[in-house]
Amino acid sequence: MTKNPLIICFFLLAFFLVISSCSDDQCNLDTDTILNTEILVKDATLVSSKFLDSLSIYSPEWTDSIHNSGSSSVNYYLFLSPFSDTSTFILTSQSMLDTVNLFYKRKLVLLSQECGFVTHFTIDSFNFTTNNIDSIFILEDEITTDNDGHIQIYF
C-alpha cells in the first residue's frame, strides 16, 4: 500500500521545518514625526529682556504647553495636529504673544506590521502675526519618521 515510506518521512520533516519559522513582534523603528522648530532672537530689545528665557508654545487645542527650560535651548520638537490639515501654535513670552498657522497635507502610512500606522506631513504654507515675529523660514517641509521637518522662527 505504502510504496514510498521515504516520501512520507521527507514530507513530515519538511512540514516541521517550514512551520517552525517565527518572527519578532516588537516595533524597532522610530515612529515619531517631528517638526524641529528653531527659535532665533535677533531683536536687541528682546535679547536684553531675556525674551527667550520665558518663551512658551501651545496650541488652543492642547491642555498644556511647552516651556523653554533654559536660555541655551532654542529648539522645540513639535508634533503637527493629526486631526486636521492646519496646526495653530501660539508663542508667548512676557505677556507678548504671536500666532503661527501651518498648513499641510497628511498621509496615513503603515510603517510596519509591528509598529502600525503613522502620519506623514508635507507643509504647504504658513502665516503668522508680526507682534514680535520678524520672519519664518521652512528649511524642510517633509515630515516623516525618517526625516524631521525644520522651521526657523526669527524674532
Partner: peptide, 19 residues
Amino acid sequence: FADDITISYGHWGNYTTST
C-alpha cells in the same frame, strides 16, 4: 483595509482613524 487605527501624538492626544 484597516480600522481602529490609534496613533499617539504628544500634546494632541490619541488620534483614531481608518483607511
